[in-house]
Design a protein around this nucleic acid. Structure first.
Lengths: 203, 203
DNA sequence: GTTAGCATGTAAGGAGTTACATGATTTT
DNA sequence: AAAATCATGTAACTCCTTACATGCTAAC
């Protein structure tokens, strides 16, 4: 029922599927993943890990019990690892179109995890995000038309620029969708994550 | 001491300088100003207004006393208006380079209030924001160089795109800075807010 | 006269940050 | 052996949203 913090959990699960890790390391990768500004604090991370361990999504190495709330005594690297339940949860979360699936953060995390998904999932996520942005665009254009007369030049310029940024975002998504459709046609359900890194798309 | 919520207060003060208003109306304009997604709730707005009234930045019409915590009995439109203190506070806040001055929200609000400022202030804000974004760019490029090998193609693409968006933001700011410098040269300290609304810049 | 929208507020709680408190390991 | 950095955690606090509760005013 924690609808917003799903994003953090998803990111954690995604990173742990790649490889088991302890919290400190996890945090660094999380910060890269979530956009590098906005450093996630330990005050968020550790309680989240605790909660996930309590729910059986991950295990803590050293004490393989379901973490009975009392630390064994020593205090050192706790290595976290996905359980079968955790993997299932991750797969569901990646596929589902929950309430936080298409907003900025939710999308970024899902996108960063694309290497672990199949073409169908990727396309669903990209298209869902595109739809969401198109709605936003509509909204912005409508509200612009309504308020055209009543606002000063600067406010107008701010809105114009915001609109442009969203338009570019949509164009970017369109490019990605095309690429995925191509790769989907060539090799159904395969991971095409090993393309050239320099990504030379001539428009 | 409320360092983050300065932004909300600044926005309120800015709108009230334009014209006195009651809360409901204020909220609608605030939502346009702050980007239209992310609707500010009454649960944020009214307590903020109360606090600002308590501190003497604004007055409430109908009961011109400093709001002695007990409403008079009736319940209807409370019209808020800036006090001299409030105007001073606003001027300071617009000029100052506080901790929240250059982040996304802080900048947007200050920009939306440009019509009420002079060229010097506008230039300081635009340049401050540009510096902040340039730092971000540096950071992103550095971290990209450090992690180039260790991340998959999708994460890379996400970073590339993020970088591009910030670069565009900087280019936008450069254009605005040029325009302000021109208008500053032509007419020192005058408000050039009465340009053509259709903004035909053929570029 | 009743629905819809205007208008104001409060209480509870979610999500995260800061600041604190502690201990282990590596580097100098 | 001191300093730096790795590593884990908690408590208090902030800011905001949701959901609720209330009453006024215009339209039909």
């Amino acid at each position: 029922m924690r609808s917003r913090s799903d994003v953090l959990e998803l990111a954690i699960l995604g990173l742990l599927q790649d490889t088991p890790m302890h919290g400190y390391e996890l945090r660094k990768r999380l910060n890269v993943m979530l956009g590098s500004f906005r450093a996630l604090s330990y005050g968020s991370l550790y309680p989240a890990l605790r909660s996930m361990a309590d729910r059986g999504l991950i295990t803590v190495a050293g004490s393989s019990e379901p973490l009975p709330h009392a630390l064994s005594g020593k205090r050192s690297r706790n290595v976290y690892e996905l359980t079968a339940d955790g993997k299932e949860h991750l797969a569901e979360a990646l596929t589902s179109s929950g309430p936080t699936a298409w907003d900025d953060e939710g999308f970024d995390v899902r996108f960063a995890l694309f290497a672990q998904t199949d073409v169908e999932t990727r396309l669903r996520i990209l298209e869902g995000r595109r739809t969401r942005l198109a709605e936003r665009l509509d909204q912005l254009r409508t509200s612009a038309a309504r308020t055209r007369e009543r606002v000063d030049e600067y406010t107008l310029e701010l809105h114009r620029h915001g609109l442009e940024q969203v338009e570019r975002e949509v164009a970017w998504l369109d490019g990605l969708i095309d690429r995925e459709r191509d790769s989907g046609r060539t090799s159904k359900r395969r991971h095409p994550a090993s393309r050239r890194t320099d990504g030379s798309e001539s428009s």
